[in-house]
Design a protein around this nucleic acid. Structure first.
Length: 823
RNA sequence: GCCGUCGUGGUGGAAUUGGUAGACACGUACGUUUGAGGGGCGUAUGGGGCAACCCAUGCCGGUUCGAGUCCGGCCGACGGCACCA
């Protein structure tokens, strides 16, 4: 064959055609059946995309093309998550303005995406660093402020010294900054928050009906961390108000032998002021506060504590118990105070042992009562309550908890309540490259919102990055100086910018009206297009982005702007691409920092975009992690070459208008359509490719042996081309056209299959004797049990197994198997 | 510790609802084609055995005519949460 597979020319030609013909354009104002397909928008970083990133987009594109061919109107937009620290760090390092840096990266990434043959409706393109976009962040912020969903408070917050900014809890992984890896410090700062905690219950409830991977739902549930329990009030001598504690085990109240406060607890400072050992207490408070979060939360870490010298009263026993400060009590969780039940809680036990506090068991079993003197660890709640007044004899379980809650409520010393691990979303960042928070600080009026007519609050362009310490916005007089919108006197602008996760919490809505300068979003279009039908992205966003987006969508719903509260109906997380490290023999995640990335650019040059796409989809089930191999790429390339050659040969066959007949190849064709259609529906393109490989081989064989007539061969080849299109769009569009078709394949319909033809007329019936395969019968589909039995009894392979034995029963599964049970 | 996911050839992986374990591909071997090739094509390829057959889906047990698939118990890997009261 002289007609070589010139992938470079074919790739270029079709990428140009698709763009010129705007095949991905969608009029979002038009009605009709819709499908909203979305890949998580990328951060435009300086490093080039590697094939690990590529998986996400290639899978999305294959799904997109498949949905289009299924006849749906599919919106598939793309944009840029363009604010963020890396751009600013690059500015500090090189002097290039973050905007310039970011726009340059966007341009390069766009070229790369296009070179893979990915189709997006670029007419909807947006970038979060565009004032036309971020002004709506500011608008949203003002609306949330009005509703008390955005607020400012002084609180101990996570500070990353490397990034020189505060972080949200979600961005702290095991005490370290998720971006830089620096240990996070706790600082007391006044910061802006979004009140996501008020939505904890709704965010939890909404997970139930989502078609999302279980692991993501579980991660969100863990993060929200709901636990039922009770708040119980403890009177403390010298304090006018009782101190509430949160516990999930109010049933152990009789065993509470001390009260412990987080050193940050307001009552701790109050007690210190009144105490004769004031100094000592204050030193302790300061010391614990300075501990890094990493040390403080390390499990099994030494428990630090200090007796305040004040006493509280156990509301159940009426006995006096000491009030301690303890480093293991965290200020943010529950009420920042606990009742210590050393007998049944391991932390409390360790604390009590260390400081010689009373250990009083309140659960025992029939056989055994705990002896505090010899206990080496806290005992789980087993058996039944004793030494617990009226609750004595109640077995461990929900009933005991209910009894305790009823009791404290009746006595007016507490109530049943629910605790959450989730904390409010800290959105302030002390950095330049983000959305300015639209607030103004006035000496007379306090913190005043920027009036809507003054939006957007633009980032000043002429700021110095190099050599500057801290937030460049604090040095920009032009930015800082502003008149108070309330009293008109000189005031100062807020210099915090927003967490970039605010940008990404609603971008999926903005694709519907990206250039709208009059409003944040178009409710009518949102009503039609939302929710996103298929969202595709990495598991790394399982908590952060996805939780924030679900929260903001609810806020927008409550504001009447959208009708739904779950933005993403279906979610798919592609698995990582890994690579074998030849030196260590270990399989590692592909990443720039490991230096083991494979660039799609070189592979595209060598083998073409279709090869990279096909191999990426063939590598394994898309939800699991898969190992990249160079040899595998060659296998994909070989297959495409074979397809090319097959098409070239079939194209030279004499034309025929004869109707395609019911032949073995036609039957295989229909079976292949059925398989590929089913596989694509569950994103299993790797098995779809396997089916297409088998189909190609049979086609080539039939052609070689002259078994089928031209009409059948031609139609089967066209079917192969169509089915392969979502996976290898360039080559298939090329041949589709060479076969005389006018429209690009994405605008053509997906082939249908005939149930009748998709089933083979003959089947292999497995014959088992006592459950073990002993023979196979080639029979007509629909053969009855009686017929099969007769055939099996004459089969020379089966006969020896039946000799001298009695047939007890037979199990028959039509067209599959016959199992003879003999004795 | 709690929660979740997963253990199949030399390798990546197939196997809707329990019904032929190893599709498809890589690698390897042999053959073939070419002036040559990290090339194309073909055949073979889980282990054992001359063979009939036997063994084999992390390990042990169970349910079933029949288990990679379901149940129980271990072992191991990965991920999430975790001094969260």
């Amino acid at each position: 064959m002289t007609d070589r597979f010139d992938h470079a020319a074919i790739d270029a030609r079709w990428q140009r055609r698709w763009e010129e013909e705007r095949v991905a354009y969608v009029d979002t104002a038009a009605a009709g059946e819709k499908f909203y397909m979305l890949n998580m928008f990328p951060y435009p970083s300086a490093s080039r995309l590697h094939v690990g990133h590529g998986r996400n987009y290639i899978l999305g594109d294959a799904l997109y093309r498949r949905e289009r061919m299924a006849g749906r109107t599919v919106l598939n937009p793309m944009g840029w998550d363009a604010f963020g620290l890396p751009a600013e760090n690059a500015a500090i390092a090189s002097g290039v303005h973050p905007r310039e840096y970011t726009l340059g990266n966007i341009a390069r990434m766009k070229v790369q995406l296009k070179s893979l043959g990915l189709l997006y409706d670029w007419s909807k393109e947006l970038a979060s660093c565009d004032p036309g976009y971020y002004r709506w962040n500011q608008w949203l912020f003002l609306r949330m402020w009005e509703r008390d969903l955005a607020y400012r408070k002084k609180a101990p917050v996570n500070w990353c010294p490397g990034c020189r900014t505060v972080l949200a809890n979600e961005q702290v992984i095991e005490g370290r900054c998720e971006r830089s890896g620096d240990p996070v410090e706790i600082r007391d700062l006044t910061q802006w928050f979004f009140r996501i905690t008020g939505h904890a219950e709704r965010l939890l409830a909404g997970l139930e009906d989502l078609d999302w991977p279980d692991r993501v739902k579980t991660m969100q549930r863990n993060w929200i961390g709901r636990s039922e329990g009770a708040e119980i009030l403890f009177q403390v001598e010298g304090l006018p108000e009782p101190v509430p504690v949160f516990t999930t085990r109010p049933d152990t109240l009789y065993g509470a032998t001390f009260l412990a406060l987080a050193p940050e607890h307001p009552a701790a400072a109050t007690l210190a002021r009144m105490s004769p050992k004031k100094e000592e207490i204050q030193v302790f408070i300061e010391r614990v506060r300075r501990e890094s979060r990493l040390e403080r939360e390390a499990e099994g870490g030494e428990k630090e504590g200090l007796d305040t010298g004040f006493a509280s009263v156990n509301p159940a026993t009426g006995e006096k118990i000491p009030v301690w400060l303890a480093n293991f009590v965290l200020p943010e969780y529950g009420t920042g105070a606990i009742m210590g039940v050393p007998a049944h809680d391991q932390r409390d036990f360790e604390f009590a042992r260390r400081f010689d506090l009373e250990i009083r068991p309140v659960y025992r079993t029939k056989e055994r009562e705990l002896d505090p003197a010899v206990m080496t660890q806290a005992m789980p709640h087993v058996g039944y309550l004793y030494r617990s007044g009226d609750w004595d004899g109640t077995p461990n379980g929900p009933e005991a908890v209910r009894k305790a809650i009823a009791w404290v409520e009746a006595k007016g010393v507490g109530k049943g309540t629910v605790g959450y691990r989730l904390r409010d979303w800290l959105i302030s960042r002390q950095r330049y490259w983000g959305t300015p928070i639209p607030a103004i600080h006035c000496e007379g009026c306090g913190v005043v919102p920027v009036p809507e007519r003054d939006l957007p609050v633009l980032l000043p362009e002429d700021v110095a990055f190099q050599g500057a310490e801290g937030n460049p916005l604090e040095k920009s007089q032009a930015f800082l100086r502003v008149d108070c919108p309330s009293c008109g006197k000189p005031a100062r602008r807020e210099t915090d910018t927003m967490d970039t996760f605010v940008d990404s919490s609603w971008y999926y809505l903005r694709f519907l009206n990206p250039d709208d300068s009059a409003r944040m979003l178009d409710s009518a279009r949102a009503a039609h297009w939302m929710p996103v039908d298929q969202y595709v992205g990495g598991i790394e966003h399982a908590i952060l982005h996805l939780l924030y987006a679900r929260f903001v969508c609810r806020v927008l719903k409550d504001m009447g702007l959208v009708g739904i509260e779950e933005p993403f109906a279906r979610l798919f997380n592609q698995g990582l691409i890994t690579k074998l490290n030849a030196a260590t023999g270990k399989v590692e995640k592909m990443s720039k920092s490991r230096g083991n990335t494979v660039s799609p650019d070189e592979l595209i040059e060598r083998y073409g975009a279709d090869t990279v796409r096909l191999y990426t989809l063939f590598i394994g089930p898309p939800e699991k992690e898969s190992e990249w191999s160079e040899e595998g790429v060659i296998g994909a390339y070989r297959f495409l070459n074979r397809v090319h050659e097959l098409c070239a040969r079939v194209a030279t066959l004499p034309g025929s208008d004869a109707p395609a007949r019911d032949t073995p190849l036609a039957r295989l064709e229909h079976r292949t359509i059925a398989r590929v259609t089913a596989d694509a529906a569950r994103f299993h393109f790797h098995t779809a490719v396997a089916a297409l490989m088998e189909f190609q081989r049979s086609l080539a064989e039939a052609l070689e042996e002259g078994r089928e007539d031209a009409a059948v061969l031609r139609r089967a080849t066209l079917t192969l081309v169509k089915l392969l299109h979502p996976i290898a769009p360039h080559l298939t569009d090329e041949w589709w056209e060479r076969f005389g078709e006018k429209k690009p394949l994405i605008e053509c319909s997906w082939p249908a299959f005939d149930e009748e033809l998709a089933t083979t007329p003959r089947v292999t019936l497995v014959v088992q004797v006592n459950g073990r395969v002993r023979g196979r019968l080639d029979v007509e589909r629909g053969t009855s049990e009686q017929e099969a039995l007769t055939l099996a009894r004459c089969d020379e392979r089966i006969v020896p197994w039946l000799e001298g034995r009695e047939l007890a029963r037979s199990v028959f599964v039509a067209d599959r198997l016959l199992n003879l049970v003999v004795r």
